[in-house]
């Protein structure tokens, strides 16, 4: 059974069809890519999975449990964590506190022995944030902010991790090390879903790529297959008159 299954989602905003019968599957241990032109519905799909947008129809299933009608908070408890395209960091907290607040939420009152602090320190180390752990989160450059968001999502011990454009604002070297990190995270039995414009990151880290266009999944396959799909090319470049 797949970790995350999204089936036949339909979302309308006013007259605009944001998602039109969209279905994707994400396996634990895999990085699943989600690409597509502007307005294809990628962020809307994330919003539906994390409960910020209610679909008109369709289902979201995690580990066989239907979470379509759960509140965002309960989905978070069910193991769905995410990052945001337009950073949603806690600007008045330090980097360490940003991770702590997420880690503590996962901690049950009964098991206060669980060493939250040690886990957070480990994550800071792993994400290369140890040196800036005491700084206010928003005082950092964008590339680091993205990492803090990823760290915060990881601190919640997710089973499904949704990453919305994590490479935006990172330089080439950072992007490369980020791809490695993604592979490691997935290897820890997490289903990673990645929305990204940076083709190098998508092609370099994904096991499967879904191409979304006009609210529906146009193609799905390995990065190599997708790159050479004619339907995908015309979705990106338009079918108009070639000069």
């Amino acid at each position: 059974m797949a970790r995350l299954t999204v089936e036949h989602l339909v979302v309308r905003f006013g007259g605009c069809q944001a998602l039109d019968d969209a279905s994707i599957v994400a396996e634990a241990g895999h990085v699943t890519g989600l690409i597509g032109p502007n307005g294809a519905g990628k962020t809307t799909l994330f919003n539906v999975i994390s409960g910020l947008v209610t679909p008109k129809s369709g289902r979201v299933v995690v580990d066989g449990r239907d979470i379509t009608h759960l509140s965002p908070t309960k989905r978070g408890r069910a193991g769905v964590a995410r990052t945001f395209q337009r950073l949603e960091l806690f600007g008045m907290l330090s980097v360490r506190e940003n991770l702590l607040v997420a880690a503590e939420t996962q901690q049950r009152w009964a098991r206060a022995g669980d060493d939250v602090a040690a886990r957070v320190e480990g994550l800071l180390e792993r994400l290369g944030l140890a040196d800036v752990a005491g700084e206010l989160a928003t005082s950092l450059p964008t590339g680091l902010c993205r990492r803090v968001e990823v760290g915060r999502a990881l601190a919640a011990k997710p089973r499904v991790l949704l990453l919305d454009e994590p490479a935006a604002g990172q330089d080439d070297a950072e992007t490369r090390s980020f791809a490695t990190l993604l592979r490691q995270v997935a290897a820890d039995d997490v289903a990673v879903v990645l929305v990204e414009h940076d083709v190098r990151l998508v092609m370099g880290s994904c096991d499967v790529v879904n191409v979304l266009d006009g609210g529906r999944v146009l193609a799905c396959g390995t990065p190599d297959e997708v790159q050479h799909d004619d339907a995908v090319l015309s979705a990106y470049l338009g079918a108009g008159r070639p000069a």
Binding site: G238, A239, G240, R241, P242
Partner: peptide, 29 residues
């Protein structure tokens, strides 16, 4: 325009932007 081929047919000049920079500028071809 995202659908590049559509406009390249009518444009006089074009520029290609990638990741916040202009990568190329020139004739449509």
């Amino acid at each position: 325009e995202q659908f590049a081929r559509m406009v390249l047919g009518v444009a006089d000049r074009a520029a290609l932007m990638v990741r916040g920079r202009v990568e190329a500028q020139g004739g449509p071809a």
